[in-house]
Amino acid sequence: MEIITNSPEETRKLGEEIGQRLEEGDVVSLTGELGSGKTCLTQGIGIGLGITEVIRSPSFIIVNQHHGRVPLYHIDLYRLEDSSQIYELGYEEYLYGKSACVIEWGERIEPLLPPEHLSLSFTWLDETRRKIQFFPSGNRFQDLADAVSQSCRLAR
């Protein structure tokens, strides 16, 4: 399944659809180049989770925590190129806790992700358009992806 967004606003809206459906312990992994919309989509997820504060890029600080309907860990592995550093970050506490977890550059810890999670892959089409592909693992995320897809189709 894939969705094409025509603007940052549409990417954010897609994130909101995902965020509305996230529960405790859910992990969403985001893959895509710089400027492809990962943080933008996460801002939408935050809105969907009822988070009122602005969600900023956590590239520098690696992990941001936000409080919403479900707490959200927003993790950004941009600056971590070596997987041993990720082990030392104490990733288990984030990935296997009572929060939802969105991980930018999540492919860098692919083997550490829980068996059931949602991977999203971002591709540039042009300056504002992005292709976002859904790779759900497990029934729960398959259903979530289907529901988001349905909802986006209805909205258009």
């Binding site: 933008c40 900023r56 890029s57 590239s59």
Partner: peptide
């Protein structure tokens, strides 16, 4: 005021 997305240094 503050940034709404990336920090300046970022």
């Amino acid at each position: 005021g503050q940034t709404r997305d990336d920090a300046a240094g970022e």
